[in-house]
Design a binder for these strands. Structure first.
Length: 209
DNA sequence: AGCCAGGGTCTAA
DNA sequence: TTAGACCATGGC
């Protein structure tokens, strides 16, 4: 069985260099909520409708109804609209460059995010990693499914987290790239071509697709 | 036609 | 503490 570090390098070797979600923290937060239990396609539809106006200012000036209409294609639009409005307000109340915020808020950032209704563990970790560069390994259904296919049987997410967070340097960039590689593997390759030649795990994956 | 999509909340036992 | 219902829309 490969450890988390070895697994990472397998992916790094067979897929191209992973990309980052977005360099804009607000874009990460907005899209992380929209994509919950929804296809990426729908998120893109909404985002392309907004074009270059995806800013906290623009979103916060929309009424709930306007926001709901905007994000409707992503499903669960009432709940998500409320979450996004809370998130915008939350985001706007801090100056993230100030030292005091860095010292007092950052250490409890995960708890803070989890306290927002509509943000659970996965979304919080996505925001932590891709928007704030804080290492907290992202565990989503793809990660769980991948590990299952490879024959690991972890009891719960805590065990999965331990698997990733013990053998790897605690590095947000690495976590973000790793998560992206898993998506790359599951979505761009496995889903489209289950018998993908370049995948060293194709035999294991094939049985369980 | 029905199932899944990068989840999260609430409730009952 | 955990399993299951529920939330909503789009794509295949």
């Amino acid at each position: 069985m490969l450890n988390a570090n070895e697994l990472y390098h397998v992916f790094l070797d067979i897929y191209c260099k992973p990309r980052w979600w977005s360099d804009d923290p607000f874009t990460v937060m907005f899209q992380a909520v929209l994509v919950q239990n929804t296809s990426w396609n729908s998120v893109e539809k909404t985002c392309s409708a907004i074009q270059n106006k995806l800013t906290p200012e623009y979103i916060s000036n929309l009424s709930v109804e306007e926001l709901e209409i905007l994000i409707r294609p992503c499903g669960f639009y009432k709940a998500k609209a409320r979450t996004i409005q809370t998130l915008v307000t939350w985001f706007g109340q801090y100056d993230f460059n100030s030292e005091i915020v860095q010292k007092t808020l950052m250490p409890k950032l995960r708890k803070e995010l989890l306290s927002i209704r509509g943000i659970g563990a996965e979304t919080a970790d996505v925001i932590l990693v891709y928007a704030f560069y804080k290492p907290s390994f992202i565990i989503d259904s793809y990660t769980r499914r991948l590990l299952l296919r490879l024959g690991y049987n972890f009891y719960n997410d805590a065990a999965i987290r331990q698997f990733f967070e013990t053998d790897l340097p605690r590095d947000a960039q690495l976590y973000g790239w790793y998560h992206w590689l898993i998506l790359e593997h599951c979505i761009s390759f496995c889903r489209k071509s289950p018998k993908c030649d370049i995948c060293p795990f194709r035999e294991k994956c094939k049985q369980l697709l």
